Amino acid sequence: MRKKDILTPIGITLGFIMIMLAILAKGGTEGVASFLDISSIFVVIGGLMASLLINFKMEQIKLTGKVINETFHKNNQRMPELVDKFILLAERARREGILALENEMDEVDDEFLKKGILLAVDGIEPEVIQDIMNAEITAMEERHYRGRAILEKAGEYAPAWGMIGTLVGLVLMLNSLSDPATLGPKMAVALLTTLYGTIMANLVFIPMKNKLEQKTEEEMFTRQIIIEGVIGVQSGQNPRILEEKLRAFLSNEKENQKDKDDVLTGENVNEA
């Protein structure tokens, strides 16, 4: 069972709470009503849906719910457990032969890992195994890109439709200049569509797209480790040497994360 990623709902909820607190701080409970306008919601959501229908095929549109659901779950594979699995496979392969690994496949949940081991058991050349598995990684990356492209485009279109709604509202407002008392309320309603579109883009669509992109990078990195492990097991590499080789990937991952943290910290210091 996949683990839930609680940071996504927490982030979205926290964003909306902060917006509501800002509204309540300035306008009280009465001010909340002034930020609700059904026609503005129709313009942004309806226009956004129209643009996505034009931009994508129906097959991709149907996957939107599944794509969004991915942002609420974590990747299952844990690196240390993956390395330990390869050590066990390498030890059994050296002890009983590579064909003995076929009996281990029932205990392997990862389909990519299972395919790699089966290719090794079949005696496929290491270069061919790498080509096949790298082709799968490329195909996976392309699938993930097409999936998150919907969220990426939604993040672009939502503010644009918000601006279109604002322009429509301004035109209607200018047509009623003879009644100055209505200008303020009509201007406020006109600006609401821009507000809705901006919130949807920057609190929902773009952050979700970025999270999916990060998950894809993590999965690609994991699959590269799997390829190295499969080749090591097939070649009869010493389990201890294979362990050191695979744990080097974990060290590099930690170093890369540390470098990112240092860069962010340095930026914060410079800004301060």
Rank of each mutant, 00 (worst) to 15 (best):
residue 176 S to N: 14
residue 168 V to F: 08
residue 172 L to Q: 15
residue 203 L to K: 07
residue 211 K to D: 13
residue 171 V to Q: 06
residue 187 M to E: 11
residue 157 Y to C: 07
residue 232 G to N: 02
residue 183 L to Y: 02
residue 234 Q to Y: 06
residue 158 A to L: 05
residue 194 T to H: 09
residue 180 P to I: 06
residue 228 E to M: 06
residue 224 Q to H: 10
residue 157 Y to V: 12
residue 176 S to T: 14
residue 221 F to S: 04
residue 178 S to N: 15
residue 221 F to Q: 10
residue 201 A to E: 08
residue 165 G to K: 00
residue 240 R to I: 13
residue 154 A to N: 03
residue 193 T to M: 06
residue 230 V to F: 04
residue 167 L to Q: 00
residue 212 L to M: 15
residue 188 A to H: 11
residue 227 I to H: 01
residue 173 M to V: 02
residue 190 A to N: 01
residue 218 E to G: 06
residue 211 K to N: 05
residue 210 N to Y: 03
residue 184 G to T: 15
residue 215 K to L: 13
residue 213 E to Y: 05
residue 174 L to N: 12
residue 226 I to M: 07
residue 224 Q to V: 12
residue 217 E to N: 08
residue 235 S to T: 14
residue 235 S to D: 13
residue 208 M to I: 12
residue 153 K to R: 12
residue 237 Q to I: 08
residue 173 M to I: 03
residue 241 I to D: 00
residue 173 M to Q: 00
residue 157 Y to P: 02
residue 205 F to D: 01
residue 170 L to K: 06
residue 186 K to A: 12
residue 178 S to K: 10
residue 215 K to I: 10
residue 163 M to V: 14
residue 197 G to A: 08
residue 229 G to M: 11
residue 214 Q to I: 12
residue 202 N to G: 07
residue 179 D to K: 07
residue 214 Q to T: 15
residue 179 D to I: 13
residue 186 K to M: 11
residue 219 E to F: 13
residue 210 N to L: 11
residue 197 G to F: 08
residue 186 K to C: 00
residue 164 I to F: 13
residue 222 T to C: 09
residue 167 L to P: 03
residue 200 M to G: 06
residue 212 L to K: 09
residue 213 E to V: 03
residue 234 Q to K: 05
residue 236 G to P: 04
residue 193 T to W: 12
residue 170 L to I: 12
residue 200 M to E: 00
residue 197 G to L: 13
residue 226 I to K: 00
residue 153 K to C: 08
residue 232 G to L: 05
residue 155 G to L: 06
residue 208 M to F: 10
residue 235 S to E: 13
residue 182 T to C: 04
residue 196 Y to S: 06
residue 240 R to P: 09
residue 208 M to E: 03
residue 175 N to R: 14
residue 166 T to Q: 07
residue 214 Q to H: 12
residue 187 M to C: 07
residue 231 I to A: 00
residue 161 W to G: 02
residue 229 G to K: 12
residue 194 T to P: 02
residue 210 N to V: 09
residue 159 P to W: 08
residue 186 K to L: 14
residue 188 A to C: 05
residue 160 A to S: 10
residue 240 R to G: 03
residue 203 L to W: 11
residue 222 T to S: 01
residue 161 W to Y: 10
residue 211 K to S: 13
residue 169 G to M: 00
residue 179 D to T: 13
residue 221 F to Y: 14
residue 211 K to I: 12
residue 199 I to D: 02
residue 172 L to Y: 14
residue 231 I to E: 03
residue 183 L to R: 03
residue 187 M to Y: 02
residue 238 N to K: 10
residue 165 G to H: 04
residue 240 R to L: 05
residue 161 W to V: 04
residue 233 V to L: 05
residue 209 K to G: 15
residue 235 S to K: 07
residue 209 K to I: 07
residue 173 M to S: 10
residue 171 V to E: 07
residue 209 K to M: 07
residue 195 L to C: 09
residue 222 T to K: 12
residue 211 K to L: 14
residue 241 I to P: 02
residue 154 A to E: 04
residue 159 P to T: 09
residue 157 Y to I: 09
residue 233 V to N: 01
residue 222 T to A: 13
residue 185 P to E: 13
residue 171 V to C: 08
residue 169 G to H: 00
residue 170 L to Q: 01
residue 175 N to I: 15
residue 181 A to Q: 11
residue 203 L to I: 14
residue 202 N to L: 08
residue 193 T to K: 01
residue 168 V to W: 05
residue 236 G to Q: 04
residue 183 L to W: 04
